[in-house]
Design a protein around this nucleic acid. Structure first.
Lengths: 352, 352
DNA sequence: CTGAAAGCGCTTACAG
DNA sequence: CTGAAAGCGCTTACAG
């Protein structure tokens, strides 16, 4: 006889018997402590602790139609700063007693409506109380699905044109605008914006902010689109720099900025004396680059926390919706949040 | 009257009514298709598709005592290569029809037995069919808990001394051993191993492999322990290099190797002519470094896939365990897997 | 091949 | 303050 490896968790029944009460009372002792007499409550809680009892989440969810679980939808964890985002989300979820179900869906970008709908319904069938949606490439269909969702959805690190949809993001437009203005103020006229070939909503905003500042100053916006991958963009950078040279290059991603610096140095272009380079994000790349990269720092971990925080509030509202007096509460919440960014000046810029 | 935002998924009841059959038949049509007459089956399946019906996961799990969900336990997503690992796991899980519940537990390292036990029981209460455990710092207690687990657990990217516990990893010992031997063969005698101050099982293995090769060749192993963080290790590197200089430095993490290169260059030490540098991992840092870093490449994504694959097999066994004839099946599975690594020679080494 | 019924482990009105 | 009972949405022996 080998030991029963399937020996599972203690059940509510066992606790009830040990405490000499009914299931209902055990349940109440954990869910509505005030509704049970202090002495019995304490006894129950003690036994729960002794037995290491935790309510079966599936049963609990089914019975209460609340799962204390949120879905986190990401295209890919290794993409730029998504891991940091999810760390922030997870820590906040932990603190607030939520579980997280992870959906890595790298097909989310393509506009295949069928598979998108299918994805959305498996999301709903997985029974979560809310979803954190991280995806740089929002289609019309996604937006429609989100608006019709029966549970709260918070877009994370995306700015959505539709103000009805809650989001937590960074004001990339403003960040690019302000940075460009600053570099113009410092006397630069020929400023490049280096963007990814591939379209990302977030990067489009950076380009727009940059262009605005340039136009306002009567300067011509010059946007260079290059591949995101190092091996692919280096030859392009080389070609660009052999033909022309800006005074400043603002790059949408810091790894791409480092790559740009590397190519410039290979061509004996001095950074920052000949070209100043600025990146977005401020990951470890910035610190490991030589010269060290000046950056617009996007506090991605905090952003994740904020997003989960907002989602919590929205879930609470949906909860109390069952009762009445909803409208009022809903009004109080600002569901379009911008998290502050910082500028970190390092060696790839002058006059710091 | 605002529309009911809580309008939830179609239920099995609705499908049954629409198809003019009982719940049982709908359930069978999806779970045991062969047990239902082709015509009715097709009709049911059609209706399911039309209505976009997906069984409520909680109910399904509760009724069948299978959740088709695995837990992925990580200390932190932003740590070294964990994001890539989880991407591999998630993709494989997707293909095999499993959901993933994410547990980010950055307190997992500390040996607090109480909180570890508590964590483990909430893990079990969350009702998963298996767990992928990613944690570089395994304590005795963790190992004990895993051995007593009622569901399969696969250690991912860890080598566990206890052969009873299934793991999927990379043979870091061998990788370091072989690399050191190779550099000795190339005529080097003074080879440093640069390790993290903080203890990691995986890094200890690299050090052990290195030391073995050195000792075998009658050379003295020289291990330098430095902080993992760039800002912190750079001054240490500086001090080290001002006093002494190896012919080769093998560094346990590629970001730390890049940092080492940066400091060496600052001191006008030529890489690779004066010092050859080799890192582990081969992340994007290696490619962005100047000179580009030679690396032992650890295929982390594949490792994640392999681990999930193994877990799937183990879960299948546990499943059929309920019947009989278990022993035999179990024998066939190799639950201690090493994934192959590669060596990528770049500019930080000579004679490539 | 199909349906009626019990049961998965909880929660929550409803009485008392 | 507490218990008996119904119900959450499924699955699965058990009959037929």
């Amino acid at each position: 006889m080998k030991p029963d490896r399937r020996a599972s968790q203690a059940t509510i029944m066992e606790v009830a018997i040990a405490a000499g009460v009914s299931l209902a009372t055990v349940s109440r002792a954990t869910n509505h402590p005030d509704k049970v007499k202090p002495e019995t409550r304490e006894k129950i809680l003690r036994i729960i602790k002794e037995k290491g009892y935790k309510p079966n989440l599936n049963a609990k969810s089914l019975a209460s139609s609340k799962s204390t679980t949120v879905a986190v939808v990401v295209p890919e964890l290794t993409r730029s700063s998504i891991a940091g985002l999810v760390d922030g989300i997870a820590d906040c979820a932990n603190r607030r007693g939520y579980f997280v179900r992870l959906f890595v869906n790298n097909k989310l970008k393509d506009g295949d409506v069928e598979s998108l709908k299918d994805f959305w319904s498996t999301l709903m069938a997985s029974v979560v109380d809310g979803v954190l949606y991280i995806n740089d490439e929002m289609t019309e269909e996604s937006i429609e699905l989100i608006k019709n969702s029966s549970i709260p959805v918070v877009l994370t690190n995306i700015v959505c044109s539709d103000p009805e949809i809650p989001y937590v993001s960074i004001d990339y437009y403003k960040a690019a605008y302000e940075m460009t203005k600053e570099m113009i103020k410092r006397g630069n006229k020929k400023i490049w914006m280096i963007n990814t070939i591939r379209k990302y909503v977030v990067n489009d905003l950076k380009v727009a902010g940059y262009s605005k500042a340039m136009t306002e100053a009567g300067l011509e916006p010059i946007v260079k689109n290059v591949p995101g991958k190092t091996e692919l963009n280096e030859p392009i950078y080389k070609e660009l720099l052999e033909n022309d040279k800006p005074e400043v290059a603002i790059v949408v991603r810091d790894s791409m900025a480092v790559s740009f610096i590397n190519v410039a140095r290979l061509l004996h272009i001095h950074i920052p004396d000949e070209i100043e380079v600025i990146g977005f994000q401020n990951t470890k790349y910035a610190e490991l680059s030589r010269p060290k990269l000046s950056c617009i720092e996007t506090p991605i971990y905090d952003l994740g926390e904020e997003a989960m925080d907002l989602l919590t509030k929205l879930m609470d509202i949906y909860d109390s919706d069952d009762d009445d007096n909803e409208e009022e509460v809903e009004e109080e919440i600002d569901a379009n949040i911008y998290v502050d960014y910082n500028v970190v000046w390092r060696e790839s810029t002058k006059n710091n």
